[in-house]
Design a protein around this nucleic acid. Structure first.
Lengths: 138, 138
DNA sequence: TTGCGTGCAAAGGTTTTGCATGGCA
DNA sequence: TGCCATGCAAAACCTTTGCACGCAA
C-alpha cells in the first residue's frame, strides 16, 4: 500500500518555481498572491499559506519577520547544506539579504555556547543592520 | 499662546510605569491590556497602542518582532538607547527569549563592519538556537 | 479507489481609524 | 476655553480553520 507524503500539483510547482525565480530575494505571502492574480493563475490564498508553511518546515524556505514590513517574509534557501554555517545579513535600508560566510561566526557560536550555554542556529539567524550603500546615503 | 505637544494623563503614566517596572523585560500589547484588566484599571486597547507607538517614536521604547510570538514586542530602553546594545537569543525549543549582554557582540559588530562593510544593529537582531535546558532534552 | 490538495467562506488575532466625549493646561 | 487624549465600535490586515469537492498516484 503506497502512502505518499505529498502530491505534486500544479500549484505547488508554480509557487516554488516563482519563489526560486526571485533568486534569493525575500517574498511575502501577499506578493505571491498578487503575482498569481496578475498572471491570471487561480491559486487560493489558503493554498499559498499552506505551501509556504510546508516549505518552511521542510527547510527549503526560511521564514522571518521584519519590523516595517507587514507580515512574514520568506526566502528560498534550497537544500544546500552549505548554508548551515552562513549567517544572513538583512539591510534595513534597501531590504537586501546578504550571505555572510566567515570564520568569525564560528567564534561567536563557540563563545555563546561556552559562556552562555546557548547553541546558535546560524541557518535561522538574521543580523539586521545597514549595508555599505545605505550607510553611504546617510 | 501655549501649545503643549502632549498632555500628562493617568493613562500615559500608568502605561509607562508598568513597562518600566518590568525592568528591561519585553512586553506585548496584549500583555499590557490584560495587566490593566486584572488591575481593574480601565485603559482602552486603542490608548495602549497609541502610547506604545508614541514611546517608540520618541525613543523610550524599542519595538521588535520575533517568529513564534504573535504581535510586536516592546522593551524599555530609557533615553540612553545607545548604551544598551545587546542581542537577543530565542530558543527554538521552549520559545524563551533571553538577553545576551556581552562584549563579544562588540567584536562581531566590529568585524562585520571592517571586513564586510555592514553595520549590525544589535538591538534588532535575534539569534535563534537552543537553550541549555532544551539541549539537555535531546 | 484513497486520501491529500484545493478553494471558498468564515473565524481568529493584532493593529488602526472614525467619532463623540472626557480631561489637562 | 482650546485641544489633545480617551474609549468604544468598526474596519483593515494577516493568517488559520472547517468543509465539500477535485485530483494525483
Amino acid at each position: 500500500m503506497k502512502r505518499p507524503e505529498s502530491y505534486k500539483t500544479k500549484q505547488s510547482e508554480a509557487i516554488l518555481s516563482y519563489i526560486i525565480s526571485l533568486a534569493g530575494g525575500h517574498v511575502t505571502a501577499a506578493q505571491i498572491v498578487s503575482h498569481f492574480e496578475k498572471e491570471k493563475v487561480l491559486i487560493g490564498r489558503t493554498t499559498i499559506y499552506r505551501h509556504l508553511d510546508r516549505l518552511t518546515v521542510s527547510g527549503k524556505l526560511r521564514r522571518y519577520t521584519t519590523d516595517g514590513i507587514s507580515g512574514a517574509c520568506y526566502q528560498y534557501t534550497g537544500n544546500n547544506a552549505d548554508c548551515c554555517e552562513h549567517l544572513h545579513l538583512k539591510c534595513e535600508g534597501c531590504g537586501a539579504l546578504l550571505h555572510l560566510e566567515c570564520c568569525a561566526i564560528i567564534d561567536l557560536q563557540q563563545h555563546v555556547l561556552d559562556k552562555h550555554a546557548f547553541k546558535v542556529n546560524a541557518m535561522k539567524t538574521v543580523l539586521y543592520g545597514k549595508c555599505d550603500n545605505c550607510l553611504g546615503k546617510e
